[in-house]
Amino acid sequence: MTQAIELNDLILAIYDTTVDPSGWPKVLDRIARYIGARGAFVFELQGLGKERRIHAPFFSSVYNQDLVDGYLAAHNAQELIDQDVFARLSRPTDQIQLITDDALANTEEELLARANVRTMLEYGIRYRAGALLNKDQVNQDRFALQFSASAGPLSKAHFERAALLMPHIAKALNISRPTKQLADQFRSVADCIDMLVIGVCILDATGRIVHSNHEFRRQLESYPVFRKDPAGRLVMNAPGSSGALAELRGDLSNHGRFGARPRKEAIVSLVDDKPHTLCVEVAPLTSANEFGEPSLNGHIVYSMDTGSFYEINGDLLASMFQLTQAEASVLEMMAEGLTNLQISERRAKSVETVNSQVKSILVKTRSANRTQLIRLATNISSSFILERSHQNG
Rank of each mutant, 00 (worst) to 15 (best):
S253V: 15
E247C: 14
L220C: 01
Q185F: 09
G232H: 06
S212D: 11
F159H: 10
L164Y: 05
P230V: 12
A157I: 14
Y223F: 12
H168T: 02
L234C: 10
G199L: 00
V235R: 04
H211Q: 07
L182K: 01
E160S: 13
A205F: 08
K264R: 11
G199R: 01
A238K: 12
V200G: 01
N213I: 06
P262H: 03
H168L: 02
G243R: 00
A157D: 15
S269Q: 03
R261K: 09
V189K: 02
H158Q: 00
A162H: 11
Y223N: 06
G259F: 05
N174Y: 15
G250E: 07
D273L: 07
S155Q: 06
R261W: 11
S241A: 12
L164T: 11
P230Q: 06
L203S: 04
M236V: 12
F159E: 03
L270K: 13
L164P: 06
S188N: 10
G259I: 07
I202F: 01
R227F: 12
I169T: 01
G207T: 02
A231P: 08
S222K: 12
R208E: 11
H158E: 00
A266S: 11
R218C: 08
D272Q: 11
L234R: 08
G243V: 00
E215G: 13
F216N: 03
G243Q: 01
R233M: 10
F216Q: 06
D251R: 15
G199V: 02
S241N: 09
L270S: 07
E221Q: 14
K228C: 15
R233L: 04
H211Y: 11
M166E: 01
H255G: 02
D229F: 00
K180D: 12
H255W: 03
D204N: 08
H255K: 01
F216L: 03
L248D: 06
A162W: 01
F186A: 05
K274T: 15
V271C: 01
Q219C: 08
H214G: 09
D191L: 14
D184W: 10
L165N: 04
P230M: 03
D194Y: 06
Q219P: 00
R263C: 15
R261C: 09
S242Y: 15
K274L: 14
C192L: 14
R217C: 06
S222D: 15
A260G: 12
E160I: 01
S242C: 13
E215I: 13
L245A: 00
D251L: 12
F226D: 03
V200P: 01
D251V: 11
C201K: 07
G199D: 02
G240Y: 02
A266Y: 04
D184T: 08
P262S: 05
Q181G: 03
L173R: 05
A266T: 10
H168Y: 00
D184N: 12
A162E: 02
